[in-house]
Simulated scan of single mutants.
Amino acid sequence: MYAIINNGNGDYYTSTVYACYEDPTNEDGTNWWGEYYIVLNKEKNALIKHYAYDSSVKPSIRQMILYIDDNQDNWNVDKRTGIGEINISDRDSLMKMVEQSTVSNELIELDKQYHFEDYPEIHNEADIAKLMLVSGHFHDARIKQIEDTNDKLHIIFDDVWGCNIEMWFSGDVSYDISCRNPAVYDPYWLGSVMIIANGFIYFIDDEDATIEDAAGDNYCWFKAREVKYHVIPD
């Protein structure tokens, strides 16, 4: 597992996620506000305990772990809750490193193996899956800024849970955002889908939408030959 670690106020870095645990603060199951992760510190010379959410932010909570890769194939994990740790270590060892502000060479080397792209491009379904994972399918997102120049479209989405997302569309660009005009309609997205077909990438504001839906007036949609994006934690 790999994630953007959000420290708040625009400060962030990336790290392998080595474990997911929770503070037992209720009796009825998972307390999401007590969920925390074992990750590297920003200097990447020690393990730290980093909470998944900051519930002190008002009016809504801030997501502090933004997944890029949520694969747990190399974890010992409870499949129901997601609680567990990477299989080359154990909870006691990981927590001891957190307490002593250290990290093993084996865990550092594992982190070095992951190639993080700050400005990834969309080429295939795997790329789309990463974008949807880190953005939560753009649930509660809205278009904050849009600029259309010379067949290139630049968009900034805000209110994505835990981040803003900057996107660039280029090559035979077309789009329709009229149904998200905040002066007339609700500007917030409930979800989204991205589809690669016929040499184009389609991006539509509904998880169940099809390419044919992009021809209608009831959807906000974008179509281009090339798409790239950048995640900006808030």
Results as ranks from 00 to 15, higher is better:
residue 211 I to Q: 00
residue 214 A to R: 03
residue 217 D to A: 11
residue 193 V to R: 12
residue 204 I to P: 00
residue 187 P to T: 10
residue 181 N to V: 03
residue 229 Y to R: 11
residue 189 W to P: 11
residue 178 S to M: 05
residue 210 T to F: 06
residue 201 I to G: 01
residue 195 I to L: 07
residue 202 Y to F: 09
residue 193 V to S: 10
residue 185 Y to Q: 08
residue 175 Y to R: 09
residue 176 D to G: 04
residue 176 D to T: 05
residue 217 D to W: 08
residue 203 F to P: 06
residue 179 C to Q: 14
residue 210 T to P: 00
residue 190 L to I: 09
residue 212 E to R: 01
residue 189 W to I: 05
residue 177 I to V: 15
residue 204 I to C: 13
residue 225 R to Q: 15
residue 215 A to Y: 14
residue 229 Y to V: 13
residue 222 F to W: 10
residue 221 W to C: 02
residue 195 I to D: 00
residue 202 Y to D: 00
residue 174 S to K: 14
residue 190 L to R: 14
residue 208 D to W: 08
residue 229 Y to Q: 13
residue 199 G to M: 10
residue 203 F to K: 13
residue 175 Y to H: 10
residue 212 E to W: 03
residue 215 A to L: 11
residue 223 K to C: 01
residue 223 K to P: 00
residue 210 T to H: 01
residue 216 G to T: 03
residue 195 I to A: 01
residue 179 C to L: 12
residue 222 F to Q: 10
residue 221 W to H: 06
residue 209 A to W: 05
residue 202 Y to K: 00
residue 184 V to G: 01
residue 181 N to E: 04
residue 192 S to Y: 06
residue 194 M to H: 02
residue 185 Y to A: 12
residue 229 Y to T: 07
residue 216 G to F: 06
residue 227 V to A: 05
residue 218 N to A: 15
residue 218 N to G: 15
residue 206 D to H: 12
residue 199 G to N: 10
residue 188 Y to N: 08
residue 219 Y to V: 04
residue 192 S to I: 07
residue 232 I to Y: 00
residue 218 N to H: 09
residue 192 S to A: 14
residue 209 A to R: 08
residue 211 I to V: 13
residue 204 I to Q: 03
residue 227 V to W: 02
residue 206 D to P: 07
residue 220 C to E: 08
residue 228 K to H: 14
residue 190 L to P: 00
residue 197 A to I: 14
residue 184 V to K: 14
residue 196 I to R: 05
residue 229 Y to M: 11
residue 224 A to R: 04
residue 190 L to F: 12
residue 179 C to W: 04
residue 233 P to M: 07
residue 230 H to M: 14
residue 188 Y to F: 14
residue 198 N to M: 13
residue 224 A to L: 08
residue 206 D to S: 14
residue 219 Y to M: 09
residue 178 S to Q: 07
residue 196 I to G: 02
residue 222 F to E: 01
residue 185 Y to M: 09
residue 218 N to T: 11
residue 227 V to E: 04
residue 214 A to Q: 04
residue 187 P to R: 05
residue 185 Y to S: 13
residue 186 D to R: 04
residue 205 D to M: 09
residue 177 I to T: 15
residue 219 Y to H: 14
residue 192 S to N: 12
residue 176 D to N: 15
residue 232 I to S: 02
residue 179 C to T: 15
residue 198 N to K: 13
residue 219 Y to Q: 03
residue 221 W to E: 03
residue 224 A to P: 03
residue 222 F to S: 02
residue 177 I to N: 11
residue 193 V to K: 12
residue 203 F to E: 02
